[in-house]
Design a protein around this nucleic acid. Structure first.
Lengths: 352, 352
DNA sequence: CTGAAAGCGCTTACAG
DNA sequence: CTGAAAGCGCTTACAG
């Protein structure tokens, strides 16, 4: 490895002068600078980062911590879009991304090692089911700046960027209702499986129905299934039998449930959207060459990543800055899977 | 940051003893070890990696260099599957992954900075169109171990892991032919856009047709389009007019072209697979909820990533080890998009 | 404008 | 079994 000393020797100056030239300091004679720069170019010298890191305590690297497995196709989309935003910000800050999977299943893996080792200046967490307490304590102990994406840890000290899931859930029902639907079902996820986000969508769904004046009890139209397509299909098949009258629209709390949901509906003899409309949430289903263009809610994932990174850099440059909480809006996207129901029975007079 | 000195002070030993305990050396009295370990636990001491890196010249990090953008949906699948294999190997070697995009478009970004800075011990390149000469020279200059995935750099010094695209192309034609097809078209990519892989698939296609005794000139059945769906559709529409007789099967050199290709065929009034069979290459199209189960070739992407990382670790531990070249096979996957053609005119007597 | 000194946190010989 | 010394590559005061 070429070091400052090598350059210094060949240029006939001390290594300190080389350091000055590399860092663009002004207290260097112009002729010296040129001479040194020439040797730097000849030798291809580039300052090793370890020496610098040891000095400054900074390594210009941030970690992305996520339990999302690389081979899970739908959730990967979420991760990748967020990453693209993080990456943009990192590029602007000359910072690299250390990629740390925190496997959901393989608990024995010590995913905090890179942080303990001070291999990163800060950390962005994505898709953690719950923000673990141990993690929080470690972060505090080691004064490691941290920003969480897609969750809202209680602790005041943690910054986060999230979307307004309640408003999006509410608004989605409005959009469905506006088109004439009155019996709307909701496909969620058990709260034990994910964080409050999905519950918020469900709460928005409930509140919207209350506000819009539905006399129906929404509970009977709410299904909660885990990520497994088979599970989704079975629960929908069972639920349909109990929903009287049949819903004319199904709001899926995540796009990744849409294919299985549509299959289940079709298996029950319902055509989408002729017999039942389907709306998703997240916004990547239509990138997947799915057979049907799905109305959905477009999460601003790259923006979330970008903002999270920007906040993180602020914390890094200025440890102790008050924590930041940002809530981004989720625009509704119309799509072929959402149409007016066959029989509208005059509800259209309801004004919007 | 808690350092060896802090531990040493509290435990009443020198920091060297702390180093010994941390590294599990044997020349430490048992009672001392226990005493020191207790303080380590109390203080939550973990050796910072910068000091170690400065000493050993190693940082237990490898870089993944790729021009594949995070937001390009189909190619991302390729990248992620490869990454999952790399990640597995890294975990076994207690190594972290530094993620470096080398943007295809934004040339001004200095994607070699992390390597020059010795921020990584080695580098895995994925999806580079051509392995750039400058990159190679830099790697040699800085003695940075490197393994390339999905390409075969000429230089003897570079290790790579690739798939047998020629054999897969050849075998695919056999599979199609076996089912009775005699007029088979090929959708490739201009050689200027990608590396020899796609050309190899095309060569396998050609050779298979020659061997199987097709009297047709395959040139008229070969289309080359870039990644743009619009481009693919236009070229297929034009090509179909010139193919006489019409092909009864289309072999797409990559799954990412399949949706556009099928659209083009359907726009021309051809049903898949009733009028024309379609076969892909890569193996992720069927993960995308595509409307049709596609016959394709399943690239062993996680294995490629895993092997590449294993080879890289060998190079890192033992710089100067002869370069390794590995070629993995690509199994053919039958699917609903490949069926027997409507009229078979007695070709079935051909023996396999 | 330039360099000698000290130190960042660690490890590796070398003495005792 | 334990510690003092030197050094990894760099930067930051401090002298001159």
């Amino acid at each position: 490895m070429v070091t400052q000393k090598d350059v210094a020797g060949k240029a006939g100056v001390s290594f300190i002068t080389v350091s000055r030239v590399i860092n663009g300091e002004h207290n260097v004679k112009e002729t010296t600078r040129i001479k040194v720069q020439k040797v730097i170019d000849e030798l291809g010298y580039c300052p090793g980062f370890a020496g610098k890191a040891l000095n400054s305590g900074k390594c210009n690297t941030i970690a992305v911590l996520t339990p999302i497995p690389f081979d899970e196709d739908m959730r990967m989309f979420y991760l990748m879009r967020v990453l693209s935003g993080i990456e943009k910000s990192c590029r602007e800050h000359d910072t690299d991304i250390l990629f740390c999977l925190s496997p959901e299943k393989k608990k024995e893996y010590d995913y905090l090692r890179p942080y303990r080792q001070r291999k990163v200046d800060g950390i962005i967490c994505i898709g953690l089911k719950d923000f673990p307490d141990i993690l929080l304590k470690e972060l505090m102990l080691r004064k490691l700046p941290c920003v969480v994406i897609g969750d809202r840890p209680q602790d005041k000290a943690v910054s986060w960027v999230d979307t307004d899931n309640y408003a999006a859930g509410y608004n989605t029902v409005r959009e469905i209702w506006k088109r004439g639907h009155r019996f709307i079902a909701f496909l969620g996820i058990p709260s034990s499986l994910y964080n409050a986000n999905v519950t918020d969508r469900e709460n928005g769904f409930r509140q919207a129905l209350r506000t819009l004046g539905s006399s129906e009890n929404p509970d009977e139209y709410i299904i909660r299934a885990d990520y497994e397509p088979a599970h989704i299909k079975r629960l929908i098949a069972e639920a349909l039998k109990k929903m009287i009258p049949l819903p004319t629209a199904l709001f899926c709390s995540t796009d990744s449930a849409v294919p299985a949901a549509v299959e289940a509906l079709e298996a029950a003899g319902l055509r989408v959207p002729e017999d039942i409309s389907v709306v998703g949430f997240d916004g990547f289903i239509n990138k997947m060459y799915y057979k049907l263009n799905i109305a959905t809610n477009l999460q601003p994932l790259p923006e979330m990543g970008y903002r999270a990174a920007e906040i993180l850099f602020e914390h890094i440059e200025n440890y102790g800055t008050p924590s930041v909480r940002e809530i981004l809006q989720v625009p509704f996207m119309a799509g072929a899977s959402l149409a007016a129901p066959k029989s509208t029975s005059g509800y259209y007079t309801h004004d919007f």
